[in-house]
């Protein structure tokens, strides 16, 4: 039995130690905003925050989390970075098909947490692990810059 703090709520989860967090979030807790993409940390669709840092939940065994705080796309709008990122995303109409976008937003929020005014290099490094099949990268970059400006 593992105890996990997800979006401010404590959950008792009956799952084996090596189960990836993504399975717990989607199948046991029922928060399906976080998506399964590749399952091997190569696409970024499953990105969540662990203590504010972006992490790929598909390769994160729950035994590694301990009492750290997990935030998913459902609750990231309650943080200031999350609020400004989500607004910029809507204002610039970043999304196309949308499948990767919860992961994109989680990575972008984590980036603003570390670098409130990121330069292109920092954006590239933080966002390189999030793949978008529709090619929305130019709008993602622009939206991050807008969010950084408006959040300031």
């Amino acid at each position: 039995m593992a105890t996990l703090n997800i979006n401010g709520t404590t959950h008792q989860v009956d799952a084996p130690d090596d189960m990836p967090l993504l399975w717990v979030i989607r199948d046991i807790i029922g928060l399906t905003g976080t998506k399964f993409g590749c399952g091997i940390a190569q696409c970024g669709a499953c990105t969540v925050h662990i203590d504010g840092q972006a992490a790929r939940s598909c390769v994160l065994p729950i035994s590694a989390i301990g009492d750290k705080k997990i935030t998913t796309i459902e609750a990231v709008g309650e943080t200031s970075a999350g609020k400004s990122i989500q607004k910029a995303w809507l204002d610039l109409e970043v999304m196309q098909c949308g499948y990767c976008q919860s992961g994109q937003i989680m990575s972008a929020c984590s980036l603003l947490g570390q670098h409130p005014h990121p330069n292109d290099e920092q954006i590239d490094t933080a966002m390189a692990g999030n793949i978008c099949r529709c090619g929305t990268y130019p709008r993602i970059r622009a939206a991050i810059k807008v969010a950084a400006k408006e959040g300031a």
């Binding site: 940390a41 992490a55 790929r56 390769v59 994160l60 035994s63 590694a64 490094t125 390189a128 692990g129």
Partner: peptide
């Protein structure tokens, strides 16, 4: 490393 490896093996190199 950050792009391809850190998600599993961690920046601190300790993995899980």
């Amino acid at each position: 490393y950050q792009q391809y490896c850190a998600a599993c093996h961690s920046q601190n190199g300790q993995g899980v």
